[in-house]
Design a protein around this nucleic acid. Sequence first.
DNA 1: CTCCCTGCAAATGCTTTGCAACTAA
DNA 2: TTAGTTGCAAAGCATTTGCAGGGAG
Lengths: 130, 130
Amino acid sequence: MNYKSLLKKEGISPTKQRLEIASILLDKPQHLSADQVLILLRRQGSKVSKATIYNTLKLFKLSGLVRELNIDSARTIYDSAAYTHHHFYNIDTFEVIDIPKDEINFDAFPSLPYGTKKDDIEILIKIRQK
Amino acid sequence: MNYKSLLKKEGISPTKQRLEIASILLDKPQHLSADQVLILLRRQGSKVSKATIYNTLKLFKLSGLVRELNIDSARTIYDSAAYTHHHFYNIDTFEVIDIPKDEINFDAFPSLPYGTKKDDIEILIKIRQK
DNA sequence: CTCCCTGCAAATGCTTTGCAACTAA
DNA sequence: TTAGTTGCAAAGCATTTGCAGGGAG
């Protein structure tokens, strides 16, 4: 995957730092906090600043390259898989596991409040060790 | 509703401050942040401190009197309806609207990861103005 | 008297912002 | 040149904690 052209396509100028962040986060389906991105970058010798990571993640979110997950109020997690899917959250291990979209289907769905349209659905199944 | 006996039943000693917080929050189904609870209490002349509100909300959460909602990473919202139900979240108005449990039903449900059991399900339907 | 509770202020931890230096077109 | 970027440090906020004083039994 060519991150340079991906960013350009989204109207984001592909700076060195943004490419580094993209290559860490968008490389595979995963769930990372800003701090985890920083740690991974540092580990490979990158010197991107924390501020730039926060700014870049917000930028990626706005253009839909990543999704923001509000699972734990302590920190925001960015999901590198931008397409709709859902999550298990293991409340004992703090692990987040993807659930493919088609593994969940509704046979009853509520009607939306008047004057509104659907934007997104997030299903979080909290699990724990048996 | 007698909050004093409700708190006792949960093993929480019913202090003046805790009863005030209970009567504001548990009075009806609603979604309030710690800060909103503070504002409502102040408005009726109560002098409960912010620290006590945070501590009490956490206490209520642990005993299941309220549920914690992580909808917006900016603040934690406490839901006074402890029974399972789901939510619409209007991303334009920041409004949270309850969806009764029985208005949503699955006809396909994913199998849980090995060695885990279900704890809770949270469905959040994000909506916006048409 | 003893334990638990309260509330102030300080501390924490995540996230944002101000701003001067820098960079690429 | 010139607008957009970076990164440090400081600021901002929600939340937690330390601790002295207070209250109930």
